[in-house]
Amino acid sequence: MPINSPRTAVILLLLVSFIWGSEFVLIDLAIELIPTHTFNAVRFLLAALSLTPLLWLNRSQLHGVRWRSLLGASALLGFLLFIGFYTQTEGMHYTSVSNAGFITGLNVPLVPLLGFLLFRTRASIAVWAGVIIATTGLYLLTVGDKLAFNRGDSLVLVCAFGFAVHILLTGRFVNSLPVVPLSILQLLAVALYSTIGAVTSPDPALYHPGSTPLNWQALASDPIVVSAALITGILGTGYAYWAQSACQQILESHKVALIFATEPVFACLAAWLFLNEKLGTVGLIGAGLIITAMLISELGDRRNKVKLEPLDQTTSVTD
């Protein structure tokens, strides 16, 4: 069923940000036990499988599909996700959580900037104001006055670029390719790339060097690994990237980036609820700025109404 209301799209993407922010601790615990490539291979395979019922329900989308374009777009989007998730996770071995959160959040200003440089897509003044305010809010929320660059930050910066380009290209591909097959195939591509990475790595595929050797049976019976794979695979990956692809049919890429900037807000809220961590005055100001940025961008850009028309059994954005 196509999403034809911008308000519904915003709600669905806010739910994605909530899931991403809430699952961070679980991923962090799982990665302590299982290597990044292996965890991502399992996670993205589960994500692709969780979307297969949608493929059956939307099987009319396969009629007349341009398979070469679909496979090429899926391989490219999957590669960007693979690079983004791998560099972010590896970078966090060498940098702080606050640095990683802020630098990853730089995809917010990168989306409209790269959109203009690559595709000459212009954003309104309200959007740019929202981008600047959201970036300031990200800095206050995740870093505060403790910014100190280290060797892991360059890896996380690659992640920010990867996520930004993924958002931009998704916005272009969903206007001509069916959403559900595109979502499933790009997730399968990430699983394939991660499997290749795990097999070709000189390190063991199932455990970290120097730790107790593990086998599939041990990992499959570990509650942390199993719960992390299921929750992040089905909700944080399968649902998330279907929702992104579907919602970008009616939301501009820069608005999607601004909505995703709320992820650290939800992460801090989850830490407050479950880990008894306190946000502090500076963090609260940062969270407030991010929410304010979304409102400024949305309310200030209301004059640019989204025009909907049928395309491949779905809705699309027309200029």
Rank of each mutant, 00 (worst) to 15 (best):
A129Q: 14
L118K: 03
K307W: 08
Y239E: 05
P112C: 11
L295P: 02
W56M: 11
P202N: 11
T281W: 11
A189G: 11
L14A: 04
A75H: 06
I259D: 00
G236M: 09
F24N: 11
D301P: 03
V97C: 05
I11K: 00
L289V: 07
L33M: 15
D312A: 15
A164W: 01
D28A: 14
R303F: 07
V127D: 00
T232E: 03
L110N: 01
N304D: 13
N107I: 03
I34F: 14
Q88F: 09
D319E: 14
W272L: 12
I125W: 07
T135P: 12
P209H: 12
R122H: 09
S50C: 05
A240P: 06
V282I: 15
A228L: 09
Q186D: 13
T200Q: 12
P223K: 14
I11F: 07
Q217Y: 06
H93T: 12
P310M: 14
V127W: 00
L284D: 00
S211Q: 15
T292G: 15
P6M: 00
L269T: 05
L45W: 01
I285E: 01
A100I: 04
L169V: 02
Q249D: 02
A126Y: 09
V131I: 14
L235T: 09
S22I: 08
L117W: 09
V199Q: 10
G300Y: 05
L275E: 10
W242L: 15
E252K: 14
T87A: 10
F82W: 07
A75F: 13
T104W: 03
V306L: 10
S297P: 08
Q248E: 10
I290N: 06
W216T: 10
K146P: 04
A126G: 06
Q313E: 13
L46N: 02
G162H: 00
C268S: 12
P2L: 09
I224P: 03
I83V: 15
G144C: 11
A164E: 02
T212N: 10
I125A: 12
H37T: 05
P178H: 05
F149N: 07
S211Y: 06
